[in-house]
Design a protein around this nucleic acid. Structure first.
Length: 594
RNA sequence: GGGGACGUAGUUCAGUUCUGGUUAGAACGCCGGCCUGUCACGCCGGAGGUCGCGGGUUCGAGUCCCGUCGUCCCCGCCA
């Protein structure tokens, strides 16, 4: 096959732009053969580019030479055509296409490139396996669904930049080759050639640098920035991901929350044309856990967790009363109309509860003649009536109980709440419910590490009224933190930062960090704190998750051009890969045999 | 680190358990032919399989057993 050169041809239009008004014009289009329909002496081709589809016609009576040449064209070949914009025959318009009123009658065809038969049909309706789609990502990206996600991603980023620019924020780039610090996720390390035996780390977030920018007096900073965490992947977690990083001087939690709310309202209005009401609701961490069983509650529906511990305290049902005796509690959700779930459907809930280490669940179907439940024979009519009243349960409803230590009970019941919400179709993806979850615990005891760890990060300020507890009851100290949650997904988290050397040192001590290690890892930062640091606060938003929710997809892979697989490999390039011994030697590295 | 699902034609899947048994099927795609108004074109014909890989059981394995690799989901982990 001879490949033509593009020569002096200039594209006059893209494949999505021609309309009735263009009829009669001589145009040059270039693009990919999306689909061909060979009718013998007449060939139709849908020509595709990023902007759309245009039907082009090769007609023996119109131009015999190009019609003959066109017979060899196949899917995904790249062609250029010169031709005349013509109206479709009456009644042959295609209302599905923006260009459907016209077609281009080809006078001259250039074949710019041929293509192998694609491993999956680019024009196909059926999804290929994730495997194949990732390996041939450049083909998958030709499909409008994925392309549109990336177009949206671009528009979202642009809108966010415009918003922060308008509010006087400065976008500043921070280093990608930086310092490994303790706390937080596992770092990706980069060996230094110049300083053999030393390593850079890729940033888990630009946290310290943005605080340094506050110390530098930049006042309002933001950055749309890649971050890296070497942890296991999930549908909503990639080893490299993008944050909208924000920091403000002389600000408190309210100021940051106000700016972020305004940004979100502007974003949803501009990009989706949706009005989001302000202010966003605010829940304290303890409320979120108690009422929704989650620190990222999906408040698109109610079905709140209800404490029934007192009603079971002296119950004959041992599994419940003993859980309470051991300091636990019994909580329940009322699933409206849930009595129609089958035995099998309800049995499938057990595995969800087991995932959270909870002991199990008990369900009860409320019927006119009493409860259908393993619990039924252990309950007095009074207790049953009391439960029904508290839960607001009536005939046809389902009640699910979980008894355990507070955390397990909350998490297990919280996940059951989401599952029931799904099964009842209560998770409406056209609704966007924001909620702030504030005042997380500052510290959490890690049995693995044998010490307290920062829940957010070690630069988060404690609530002033709780500071005194720092040494005696560290677990009781609440943080000046705020997470932003959208439809049950954590899309951002931030805090008021510590801005005095004294308090920062106290926190490091509470974290049980060795003085020398603190100096080694954070010495530069502590020194900076001592040169006149303004009070400051900030937030980081998970950009990929935000985009995923806005385009309505479950997996952030669908909004990333070249995502990693679950084993953190790149299916296109096959990274990570082995390197030569010379390359290692240059870095002063040798490999330990596995 | 742990649990689970999946892996069969280029692709998406059926067949796989209960019950191992002649030539492993369908749709789309692909190749050839016919076709002047299609737009998921249509019609006729055809090619295409290491049933992920390795081992085992068996007279006989896509099917049963063990291991392994890959993809995905979840728990742990992710300040």
């Amino acid at each position: 096959m001879d490949i033509d050169t593009i020569g002096d041809w200039l594209r006059t239009n893209d494949c999505g732009s021609l309309r009735k008004d263009d009829i009669g014009r001589l145009v040059v289009l270039m693009g990919w053969v999306h689909r061909r329909r060979d009718l013998g002496r007449l060939i139709f081709i849908d020509l595709r580019d990023r902007y759309g589809l245009t039907q082009i016609v090769f007609d023996e009576d119109y131009d015999a030479a190009s019609k003959v040449k066109a017979a060899v064209l196949r899917s995904e070949w790249v062609i250029a055509v010169k031709g005349e914009v013509a109206p479709r025959l009456a009644g042959q318009e295609n209302p599905e296409l923006p260009t459907g009123d016209i077609e281009v009658k080809v006078k001259e065809l250039k074949i710019l490139n041929e293509a192998e038969i694609p491993p999956f049909q680019v024009d196909g309706k059926i999804d290929a396996s994730e495997n194949l789609r990732l390996r041939y990502r450049y083909l998958e990206l030709r499909r409008p669904a994925l392309l549109n996600n990336l177009v949206m991603r671009h528009r979202i980023a642009l809108t966010i930049r415009n918003f922060f620019n308008g509010q006087g924020f400065l976008e500043v780039e921070t280093p990608v080759l930086t310092k490994s610090t303790p706390e937080g996720a596992r770092d990706y390390l980069v060996p230094s050639r110049v300083s053999k035996g030393s390593f850079y780390a890729l940033p888990q977030s630009p946290q310290l640098f943005k605080q340094l920018l506050m110390m530098a007096g930049f006042n309002r900073y933001f950055q749309i920035v890649k971050c890296f965490r070497d942890e296991d992947l999930r549908a909503d977690r990639q080893p490299e991901f993008t944050q909208v990083d924000v920091e403000m001087s002389f600000a408190d939690e309210q100021k940051v929350m106000d700016i972020v709310e305004a940004m979100m309202v502007d974003l949803f209005k501009t990009v989706l044309g949706i009005e989001i009401p302000r202010p966003f609701p605010v829940l304290e961490y303890t409320e979120a856990m108690g009422s929704y069983g989650s620190d990222k509650p999906d408040i698109r529906f109610a079905m709140e967790l209800v404490d029934c511990s007192d009603l079971f305290a002296s119950s004959a049902y041992k599994a419940f009363s003993s859980a309470i005796e051991q300091g636990g509690l019994v909580k329940a959700i009322r699933v409206e109309g849930g009595a129609t779930f089958s035995r099998k459907e309800l049995d499938s809930l057990d595995s969800i509860v087991a995932d959270f280490g909870a002991q199990g669940l008990v369900w009860a179907k409320v019927r006119s003649d009493g409860w259908q439940s393993t619990l039924a024979k252990h309950l007095s009519p009074d207790t049953r009536a009391g439960l029904e009243k508290r839960l607001g349960a009536g005939e046809g409803d389902l009640v699910i109980f979980v008894a355990d230590k507070a955390q397990q009970a909350h998490e297990a019941l919280g996940s059951l709440r989401i599952e029931m919400g799904k099964r009842l179709g209560l998770l409406d993806n056209s609704t966007y419910s924001f909620v702030w979850v504030v005042r997380f615990p500052l510290l959490e005891y890690s049995h693995e590490e044998g010490r307290f760890m920062a829940v957010h990060h070690p630069f988060t300020a404690p609530l002033e009224e709780d500071v005194a507890l720092l040494e005696e009851r560290p677990e009781a100290v609440r943080a000046r933190s705020y997470d932003l949650v959208l439809n049950g997904a954590e899309i951002g988290g931030g805090s008021v930062r510590i801005h005095t050397l004294e308090l920062q040192n106290r926190i490091f001590r509470a974290l049980g960090l060795d003085e020398q290690e603190v100096q080694e890892k954070f010495g530069f930062f502590l020194e900076a704190l001592s040169y006149g640091t303004p009070p400051h606060a900030g937030i980081a938003l998970g950009f990929d998750r935000l985009v995923a929710i806005m385009v309505g997809t479950e997996s952030i892979r669908d909004v990333i051009a070249f995502p990693k697989t679950q084993r953190a490999t790149c299916a296109v390039t096959d990274a990570p890969s082995k390197v030569g011994i010379d390359q290692l030697a240059e870095l002063g590295l040798t490999l330990i045999k596995p």
